[in-house]
Design a protein around this nucleic acid. Sequence first.
DNA 1: GGCTGGTCTTGATCTATATCAATTATTTTC
DNA 2: GAAAATAATTGATATAGATCAAGACCAGCC
Lengths: 192, 192
Amino acid sequence: MYDVFQVYLDSKIVLSEEQKERIRSLAVVKKLRKKQYLLQADEVWKYDAFVVKGCVRTYSVDEKGNEHIIGFSIENWWTGDRESLLTGEPSKFNIDAVEDSEIVLFTHQNFELICQEIPAFNDMVNAILQRSFIVSQNRIHATLSYTAEEKYLSFTKKYPGFVSRIPQSMIASYLGMTPETLSRIRTQTIRK
Amino acid sequence: MYDVFQVYLDSKIVLSEEQKERIRSLAVVKKLRKKQYLLQADEVWKYDAFVVKGCVRTYSVDEKGNEHIIGFSIENWWTGDRESLLTGEPSKFNIDAVEDSEIVLFTHQNFELICQEIPAFNDMVNAILQRSFIVSQNRIHATLSYTAEEKYLSFTKKYPGFVSRIPQSMIASYLGMTPETLSRIRTQTIRK
DNA sequence: GGCTGGTCTTGATCTATATCAATTATTTTC
DNA sequence: GAAAATAATTGATATAGATCAAGACCAGCC
């Protein structure tokens, strides 16, 4: 399953065989059963993690026990809590598997080593970070500007693959509405 | 007023006199009167911009004419539309001055030149990007998890300086509520 | 120092979405 | 493949926050 990550790397940057081997030697592949945690709130996150199979979600749980989903990561996406990683503070988020999943993990120390040794890798990481920031900004924009229905429509348009494999109640949580509201929106929208 | 930027740089990285001179030679300082645009929707954003004085806001306007504020940038913050910069697409945002302001501007070409010539500068930029991403994630978290009152309280706690200098109606827009709602929240909260 | 245009407040109502509850689908599990 | 668990739908009601409409406050400006 590491291959998926290799293919991803090859699509982004050119590496020598030694470099590929170096990166591979520092990676650990972790299998997650559905619902299994990759990170629990109050733990410190210390990795850089890439999803090679399946899907994980990042979410917080409020005092009332309601879950709020910050994001999903499927194959070929990164996951983790960068704030906890950067600050060393315990995370306020949980990350768990929506489906049986496999994750390529680097300790952050090893990851930084790779970034130092391979400038192209470092550039790639920064490009990802920049795109992640843009995606977040767009999500903030959508949250502020859209009605519940518009949020759902733009979500399905932007992430068509997610709709079929992620439970509707989780999509509702991601969009900041209740499952009931999303259900009603869907029947209304189909009718049109 | 360029000095403010120089002080900022000195606080982040160590530069030789020649490097400082080089950076300065590529910068343009732009003055903005209150309400003046730095960027209008449908234009392409092509700069890297640092606020040395005053305050600007980034916002979109929906079909009904409602403004939705994505963010504020005061002294020592960066501003601009990174999506438009990256993709070359016209921006969906406006940026204008909340107060009379001064901005240090680099064309993105020149900015990338600096990044290439001065690795420490490049690292600084990436660190900022990473922090911007984390801030966005936290804002998404707040939007999903908090009530209107909690949003306001966490805003005042996080950005105490903003409350006094930014019109309340703009803060309301930033928090995703109407000015009336924010006004009521404030009187209620004070009463406690 | 009295206009003038904007901003903030306050009140009365309205509405989108939440909540609660029951019913029906759909998975999962043994 | 039946039973149990989980998820989605549907209906009735509640509510946070929006909208609409005045009035109060306040700052810049001639």
